[in-house]
């Protein structure tokens, strides 16, 4: 376990903060860490910042996330990881297409692991189109950060306060019908991911989906996050859409 002192706290959008801390370790986009808040809990969080300074971006939804929101610079937290496979530009086995034109679809705090992925891949020369969704304009995460990568960014809000009035999957469907993409990456609420897997299948584009499950060990032995025999913490959290379609639990 790495003990890190909180370096900086950023208010990202309504009810959502980023906690930055120094941790000199290699982490891949889409990987996650287990964050220990002494006396409170330990929870899985995607890394939203991957350079020398690492970060997690957290919406306050319960006891553990409320404790994260109360952190101040200098406070110590325990970090285990990085865990999981992360997004892969090369794709999973049996899918060796190189992907230069990428569609990134994110909903809510699911945008947290997508942002560093888009940053890294855009810097490596990929042409990336992002579509992100949230309840309302004040809750949209990382829209400026994504625009700064040079990617085109489309927005959807449930209440129409910004961009498309409706679901981000509707924006995705329009983009997929207008343009040809090599790959889709997605992270967000599971109903959104389910629709994205269906769209990817219909438009015949490979899709990688980052899933969220309650986790205990984080390194693949306890089985508490298993879905159809696959461990979200170890075999995932990023899964190929075709595998997910074959699982009854998805």
């Amino acid at each position: 376990m790495h003990i890190a002192a909180v370096k900086k706290i950023i208010d990202e959008c309504e009810n959502t903060k980023t906690i930055l801390f120094d941790w000199n370790i290699e982490a891949k986009p889409g990987q996650f860490v287990m964050v220990w808040l002494p006396d409170v809990d330990e929870v899985p969080m995607s890394l939203s910042h991957l350079s020398g300074t690492k970060g997690i971006t957290v919406e306050k939804v319960g006891e553990a996330t409320a404790a994260i929101h109360k952190l101040k610079p200098g406070d110590k937290i325990g970090i285990r990881g990085p865990f999981g496979n992360g997004f892969s530009k090369a794709g999973s086995s049996g899918d060796s297409r190189s992907s230069n034109k990428i569609l990134a679809i994110g909903g809510g705090t699911g945008i947290a692991p997508l942002a560093p992925t888009v940053e890294k891949w855009a810097a490596e020369g990929c042409e990336i189109t992002c579509a992100i969704g949230g309840n309302t304009k004040s809750k949209l995460l990382f829209s400026e950060r994504l625009k700064n990568t040079g990617s085109s960014v489309h927005v959807a809000t449930d209440d129409g306060s910004d961009g498309h009035n409706g679901f981000v999957t509707e924006v995705a469907e329009k983009l997929l019908s207008e343009q040809k993409f090599d790959r889709i990456i997605t992270c967000g609420p599971e109903p959104m991911t389910v629709i994205m897997v269906q769209l990817a299948s219909r438009f015949e584009v490979p899709i990688q989906c980052s899933l969220e499950r309650y986790m205990k060990c984080g390194f693949g032995i306890c089985g508490s996050c298993s879905i159809g025999g696959f461990r979200v913490c170890k075999d995932g959290p990023v899964f190929d859409g075709r595998l997910l379609s074959s699982l009854a639990e998805f």
Partner: peptide, 22 residues
């Protein structure tokens, strides 16, 4: 449900867990 987190850690040459029979 078993015990709360943290319930598993990797140490040198060993693991330690307190899943608590979930």
């Amino acid at each position: 449900d078993g015990h709360g987190n943290p319930c598993a850690l990797e140490l040198d040459n060993s693991l330690i867990n307190a899943m608590g029979l979930p």
